[in-house]
Design a protein around this nucleic acid. Structure first.
Lengths: 183, 183
DNA sequence: ACGCAATCTTGTCAGCGTCAAGTTCGCGCT
DNA sequence: AGCGCGAACTTGACGCTGACAAGATTGCGT
């Protein structure tokens, strides 16, 4: 929090990512700009380029971070003995608590979808998700169904399409997930 | 299909909307530009502005058209005596057949979400969707659950997250929707 | 202590969205 | 019939953006 501005920022990469999260949370992924972020952080307009090469590179890093956070959250709930409903609840909780990450993660047209760090994090999250329904009949289909349910609820909630209900979104998903995936 | 180019295009609005659908289908909503569309259609760079005022205005028109098409499709299936499963199948079929419209519709940060024509079309689609589960216990919750399921599947399918399975998406949603919403 | 490479700045370029002003044309009105 | 009025489109300009190139500054290993 030094008022002076040294030539080297210290951790510009982290600062830009945080600023991006803030900007996306406010104005959506479309309303974010490299120069705008540079201004927020207090560096010159081409500062971020050195860390992310591209605008798409920035969003790639954000998406990869998001998938990692999601995988961590899912792994933590299975480690705590959570069942499918808790897994779904964790998914939705992640989506509403990290809306900016979540919105970028599922917009592959915005980033470099073949980035190795990203695909690794994504596969990790996918594995955690699939592991929750492994003991069911036709796990392939059950996996898709469960994922669709929680993902659809999360996106609808985040886009404001469900905003009439002022209930807690995590409680809601627990309610109807419980009535569909009878454990 | 005249090779000459008269000063007045004839139906520029329709042509720009069609070009936008094509461009979005190829490159996603982020990769569309007013000037690019004008070039595709063969008019000068500010031609479309007169019909849509804004870039957001263009996407507003696209979203409104999408909601109207969706409402029509849903109304048609209930008129044909379709149950909830058929309603969900119609939703998914719309999403995959009109991917460009669908992707814009659920990105309110890209358009003017308070446009009267748009909110009317959206409410019409919402009513058609809610009507399908009106006869169930706790229809409020069932509506959200059913919508989440089909919407999540549609978005995951369209983003390519589910592309491993080369099965027909409409058949898939019928399969697991049937196992969850036992009629 | 020195030099190298990473980090950040400055300058520049084409392309974008938006506005203002001019040009061409369809169409209703008399 | 023809005329004029407003809708449709063009042309030109402005500030902004992302991307690139080249220079300035500094931390760090040796």
């Amino acid at each position: 929090m030094t008022t002076e501005r040294p030539y080297h920022h210290g951790d510009l990469r982290r600062a830009v990512l945080d600023a991006a999260v803030e900007a996306i949370t406010e104005h959506g992924p479309a309303g974010v700009g490299l120069r705008d972020l540079a201004r927020r952080v207090g560096v010159s307009h081409a500062g971020p380029v050195h860390h992310f090469k591209d605008k798409a590179g920035l969003l790639t890093a954000l998406a990869a971070e998001g998938f990692t956070l999601l995988a961590d959250a899912l792994d933590a709930t299975v480690a705590a003995g959570g069942d499918i409903i808790e897994l779904g609840a964790a998914y939705v909780r992640f989506a509403v608590e990290h809306r900016a990450h979540f919105e970028v993660m599922f917009r592959p047209d915005l980033y470099h979808a073949d980035d190795p760090a990203l695909v690794e994090a994504r596969d990790r999250a996918g594995a955690a998700l699939a592991g929750g329904v492994a003991d069911r009949p036709d796990p392939e289909l059950a996996s898709v169904a469960a994922w669709s349910l929680v993902h659809g609820f999360a996106t609808l909630w985040n886009t404001g399409a469900l905003s009439r209900a002022d209930r807690d979104p995590v409680a809601m998903v627990r309610a109807f997930a419980g009535s569909m995936f009878l454990t």
